[in-house]
C-alpha cells in the first residue's frame, strides 16, 4: 500500500513552469530518494506535497485520502513530518521547546484548557516532556535539551530538525537535504541512522538528497527530477547509471564520479 501518491502535479509561478506531470509513489516503510540538479523543482515538489504550495493541477493522496485541499498544518497533523533545506526551527526557543511545539497535533487538551491550567493539561505536559526526552536521547541530542536553537551549528540543527519532525509523530518523513552541513563520513552514518529510525518509528521516508552514497545506502527507490519533470525512476543503482541522469548532472560538479569514490571509501 502506498503512503504517498502524487498524481500529475503541476505548478507554475508566473511564466515559470516549476513542476509538470510529477507522479510519484512512496510505499509503506519505503525510503524513497528524490534527486536532481539544482533548480529541478525538488523543494517545490515538497512544498506541494506538504501543502505550502497549491498545485494548479494534480492530486496529492496521503494514506489513501486526497489531501490536495488541506492546509499544511492539517497535513502535518495527519502524519507528514518535514524538514527544511535551510532549517525550520523556532530559533528563539530551546531544543526542548521546539520538541514540545512539534507535538502540537498530538496534545490532547484544548488551547483554552491549557490556559486555564486544567489538571489533564498539566499531566499531559509531563508526558510531552517525557516523549521529547526519549526522542532526543534516541538521537543522542539530549545534552542539547535546554540550549537555545540559535547558536547551534548547522549540522547539529539538521539533526535537531529530524528530532522535531519525529516529534510530530509522522507516518511519512520528508527530509530536505538531511546531510547538508555534514561531512562525507557523517552523511554515510546518517544512512544507517535513517534505516534504524524507519524501524523504530515505523516510517516511510521521502528525501531530497545530493549525497549519492547516502542515497545508495538508504533508498529503496529513486525518482529523478529535471526541469520540473520526472526524468526517470528506478532502483538506486540502476538510476545512477542511467545515461540521461548522467547527462542531466553534466555541467554540475560531476557528483556521481565523486560519489563513487566516496562510496568506495566508505564501504572499504
Amino acid at each position: 500500500m502506498s503512503v504517498l501518491e502524487t498524481h500529475d502535479v503541476a505548478i507554475r509561478f508566473g511564466g515559470l513552469q516549476a513542476l509538470s506531470g510529477v507522479t510519484l509513489d512512496v510505499g509503506e516503510f519505503e525510503i524513497v530518494g528524490l534527486i536532481g540538479p539544482n533548480g529541478a523543482g525538488k523543494t517545490t515538489a515538497f512544498n506541494c506535497i506538504t501543502g505550502f504550495y497549491r498545485p494548479q493541477t494534480g492530486r496529492i493522496v496521503f494514506k489513501g485520502e486526497d489531501v490536495s485541499e488541506l492546509g499544511p498544518h492539517v497535513r502535518s497533523a495527519r502524519g507528514m513530518g518535514r524538514t527544511f533545506q535551510n532549517v525550520g526551527l523556532v530559533k528563539t526557543a530551546s531544543v526542548l521547546e521546539n520538541m514540545l511545539t512539534a507535538q502540537h497535533s498530538n496534545v490532547s487538551y484544548g488551547a483554552v484548557a491549557g490556559m486555564l491550567g486544567s489538571p489533564s493539561s498539566i499531566a499531559t505536559e509531563r508526558e510531552l516532556r517525557a516523549r521529547a526526552d526519549a526522542i532526543l536521547q534516541l538521537l543522542h541530542l539530549d545534552h542539547l535539551r535546554d540550549l537555545p536553537v540559535r547558536g547551534l551549528s548547522y549540522g547539529t540543527l539538521k539533526r535537531v530538525e529530524i528530532a522535531t519532525a519525529l516529534a510530530t509523530d509522522p507516518d511519512l518523513l520528508l527530509l530536505d537535504e538531511p546531510s547538508s552541513g555534514m561531512g562525507p563520513e557523517e552523511a554515510h552514518q546518517l544512512g544507517d541512522e535513517l534505516l534504524a529510525l524507519r524501524g523504530e518509528f515505523e516510517l516511510s521516508i521521502l528525501m531530497i538528497e545530493h549525497h549519492v552514497p547516502l542515497v545508495l545506502r538508504a533508498c529503496d527507490y529513486v525518482y529523478v527530477l529535471n526541469f520540473g519533470q520526472l526524468l526517470t525512476e528506478g532502483l538506486p543503482h540502476d538510476v545512477r547509471n542511467h545515461p540521461e541522469v548522467v547527462a542531466a548532472y553534466l555541467g554540475e560538479e560531476a557528483p556521481l564520479a565523486e560519489a563513487e569514490a566516496e562510496a568506495a571509501e566508505a564501504t572499504r
Binding site: T50, G51, F52, G71, P72, H73, S76, R82, F84, G88, L89, V90, K91, T92, A93, E97, L100, T101, A102, H104, S105, V107, Y109, A111, V112, G114, M115, G117, S121, E125, T164, T168
Partner: peptide, 20 residues
C-alpha cells in the same frame, strides 16, 4: 502550554508553525 508555544512559533515563522 500548547497555545503559548504555538504562538511563539507563529510569531517567528508561520511556515515552521504550520509544519509543526
Amino acid at each position: 502550554s500548547k497555545a503559548g508555544r504555538a504562538l511563539q512559533a507563529v510569531r517567528e515563522s508561520p511556515q515552521v508553525a504550520a509544519n509543526y
